[in-house]
Nucleic acid binder design. Structure first.
Lengths: 229, 229, 229, 229
DNA sequence: AGCTAAACGAGACGGTACGTCGCGTCTTCAA
DNA sequence: TTGAAGACGCGACGTACCGTCTCGTTTAGCT
């Protein structure tokens, strides 16, 4: 994940088997310390929030030296990024065969993840730190954003293959239209966030991309959403 | 705006005329110091960004004591909130008679405002601080969000009165669908943001709410969702 | 005492009678404010000590503006100096006819004055401020030291006139020998201070200056230093 | 001296030899920083005086963080107390065989020490702070007062053993009579302080305790207080 | 079994900023 | 002009964390 030196697998793998001991000299890193840091981070994060989280307090809580933390993560941003990425499980990538239903399930999962105070309350902090430390952006996108993109792409691919939407639908934009409002509400407006909202969003988005019922019997469907621009 | 005690209008206003001098005891606050603080905040904000912004540096730059700042704002959050709210001019509330065009103009203005590094780079910082200081949320919404809501409402109201959309369109959701993707891209994904994108968003949203062409000559319009444009 | 401008009597006194109103323009100084300041100073001085005393707290306690204090005293030093000088009453200048007894009474009075926490706890603060502000030295000597010198001089003068000591006794030094140990103990050593101590000091000093019994009947007195006590 | 935790000797000393390294965990305190602080304090103390001395300025001058100072001393009082205690060298404890001469040498040394602006100008500040912080009194007495007491005791012990004074002479009081007037003059009266004065004080004190010439040849000395000088 | 070398806890280090306090001055309105 | 009120620029306070740096100790793999 973010290990700085260690754990960076030396490419050659003579055994061909499972990654053997990397055989570095010196005392190996202590897995218990690692876990203690992550646990402490979680506890403090949920207790006081991202901006009040300090490396010092994590070290104290974990019973660990500050260097032990800095040896693994360059700052609290990547540490937290890794920690909360472990919390965001969008669940299994379901396939109901119904595009609208798939999208609704997906968006509900996103909502659930963002609704965890731990997650929702931490995202803006990370986004903020991305300003001063662009290096933080990459892992963030990798852990937080990529899974969502992947899911939406899969759903839309299936819809295309079923002939429900045109091929040229802008997948990126669809993801933005789905997830953006969730973020906007969670971070800024404070407007309510519940399953009804995600359903409404999905309904609107589905209509906006001209989702057609699954063509059956080779019947040509009405040219819904034809010739827009 | 955020003055803590001063400028709190005494309720009764017997004359009904302009708010007379409240005549608070003691030396009144210095308007030049106030302005100097705001100017310095702006300069430093654009130079170093929100997270590196410091009350101390603002005071230095403004040639002002720290207490003079603390007397007016409880922390840098509300100060910055007020300062950047002055930057977000969505422009005059235009009415082209064309709903799609109105929305496009609106969203482009939002994009322009968010694209200012000063603004876009500051929003997540504020959102972050809102976690530890919920009191910050209110002015934020007042200055940042309310104007947008107001515009969207106006545009949709006109559309309804022209019979282009149904009355029961969820105005709040429309705003979310329009603005959310902008925020999502600006803060997190790093995806490109330009006029094409805003146009695409508007197109999708417009279709999602079943915008009809203006009914003319008493002609009954085609059913919603059909052959728009 | 320390009034800065006011109270400096304009020399000419046209009426020749009692000092009429000086007839200065503007509102006259408020005697109640003056007293309130002094009272507040006393209270705070005894509560928190000299070094924690602040002009600000005095003004608050007295219900008075800071300027009202600064108009009368240039800093807390002279103010306190004046205030505690009012506390040091060495009592009436007694004359028992017995030099030893007179000195003992005097020194006991000094001890009593210095033992007031208000006084003893304040002296070093004033002495300290005299370092940075030599102007403070003068009123200090005037109010605190001069009365003591005066008493010792009077006692020794009577002793000389009675022929108990030689004329060339160093009055200044005698005062130092009497008062110095009191100060030394009170401020620095923390050694006990009580009437026994003052009596011991007096005994020693009296012997050191060769006090003779009052020569009576033209009888030649016994050699100095004989059989005191 | 005043180290807060460090250097606190672990009680048991099994070897009886030199205090072994206590082997406290963590990085040991930096002796050079320690010295730099003391040097800076001295320089600033002599330049600006005690009351204008600032922890902040010491840290700057010493090239040291403020915490590094606070880690060692709780406030400027104890720091200065330790620093100036290093300056008060009463010189070697001489023994001329002549009590009067020994006392004169001692008192002259005291005068010399107190006359250093660094010392004399600092004492009242410390005495003042002892009011608000009684904990300051202890090191003060240890460093400033104890050495004097020790000297006077030694001188008087020798005088007793030579039969020059009675055994029951109040040593504490003698010290007070000697040193008190010096302090009194230095701090408060502003009266001159020179060798003549110390000699006069010694003369008076010596007479006040009935110092007899050294008894020689088993001859019984004349009664106390007789014909000295 | 000894050697080398990294990781570990502890905590000191030079810094920066915090938010507060008090200074002595000033500016307002009301007596 | 005085007085209460309170804002002002300033400087220092003592604290919290930063990220780095020693310490002595522990824990491995490699001679």
């Amino acid at each position: 994940m973010w290990r700085e030196q260690q754990a960076v697998e030396p490419d050659g793998d003579p055994d061909g088997a499972e990654a053997q001991a990397p055989a570095r000299p010196g005392r190996p890193r202590d897995a218990r310390a690692h876990q203690a840091i992550i646990d402490a981070t979680l506890e403090l994060l949920s207790a006081d929030g991202y901006s009040k989280l300090t490396i010092e307090s994590i070290a104290n809580r974990a019973g660990v030296g500050k260097t032990t933390i800095y040896r693994r993560w360059p700052s609290k941003g990547p540490l937290v990024s890794e920690v909360i990425s472990g919390l965001i499980h969008l669940g299994p990538m379901v396939d109901t065969g119904d595009t609208r239903k798939d999208l609704a399930i997906f968006l509900k999962a996103v909502l659930t993840a963002m609704s965890q105070p731990l997650v929702g309350g931490t995202i803006p902090g990370l986004a903020n730190d991305m300003g001063s430390d662009p290096a933080l952006a990459e892992p963030f996108r990798q852990f937080i954003i990529a899974p969502k993109r992947q899911r939406v792409n899969a759903i839309l691919d299936r819809a295309v293959s079923r002939g429900e939407i045109d091929e040229d639908v802008d997948r990126e934009l669809v993801m933005d239209l789905l997830v953006g409002p969730i973020l906007w509400r969670a971070l800024l407006t404070g407007a309510p966030l519940n399953t009804d909202v995600t359903q409404s969003i999905v309904d609107h988005v589905v209509r906006s991309i001209g989702l057609r019922p699954v063509p059956q019997n080779g019947e040509v469907p009405a040219p819904a959403g034809r010739s827009q621009r």
